[in-house]
Design a binder for these strands. Structure first.
Lengths: 121, 121
DNA sequence: GACATAGTTCAATATATCTTGAATTATTGT
DNA sequence: ACAATAATTCAAGATATATTGAACTATGTC
């Protein structure tokens, strides 16, 4: 993944409103929600939600398809995983021990983190 | 991690300049680089780099300490791992099979992804 | 002390993003 | 056809972010 593209994805997740929308859609994967349900759930006015959804769709993190007069939105989870992999790549100048220590320090349970990073290669 | 905090972290990574700075620091973990080295490496004028470093430091993703007349910057890799865990948490409404399929679809090698997501619990 | 170097701060400008209400398009139900 | 619903587009104003050069602070060197 190119830096420019990754920056755009982070940009899409950088507003609280959009991050809440995205997480709600991740939570409701793979069925997704229609725009009105998102608006109701997060109490975002439809006109404003429309603006934020456009950003998310443009970034690729959310997919949208017509469903009668509704628009169904789904999180693009594989793309989310790609950007996660991008963040952890090329770290620590090839020092696997260092990475393992960071993983321990993070306080995150090991199974919710990559088992290896790029420098274990 | 709270949504507000996560959004601030993504905001910090949402500019190409800052994302490049952060990745450079991840690459050079744990020793980090001094501001001048970053400026030289990425060809960002010092006055502008200072602005972006302030954002990164304020978000917590970069730590800075005085070293004589230099300022040494280090990536906060554990925090990066926390925000990664945040993104993958509470997904898929507790449907582990769905998550596994997404991981397969992402095209990312399994060892660079979480082995489980929250819904495997 | 005088000078050079590393960074930051400040002010000014340019640009981009956010939010809202009103108007608009598309679809469904009567 | 008419009315109701779902959602988007548009225009306007408010706010936030990015970039630059000049001035400033702090540290190290002669």
């Amino acid at each position: 993944m190119k830096t420019q593209n990754a920056a755009r994805l982070f940009e899409a997740l950088s507003s609280e409103a959009r991050l809440e929308v995205f997480r709600l859609l991740v939570k409701h994967a793979p069925n997704g929600l229609v725009a009105g349900e998102i608006s109701k759930n997060l109490k975002i006015p439809s006109t404003n939600l429309s603006f934020h959804l456009k950003e998310l769709v443009h970034s690729g993190l959310v997919g949208m398809e017509k469903e009668g007069r509704f628009r169904r939105c789904r999180a693009n989870v594989p793309l989310m995983l790609e950007v996660i992999a991008y963040l952890t790549s090329e770290c620590c100048s090839g020092n696997p021990g260092q990475c393992r220590q960071y993983r321990a320090e993070s306080g995150v349970a090991p199974e919710f983190l990559p088992t290896r990073c790029d420098c274990d290669k």
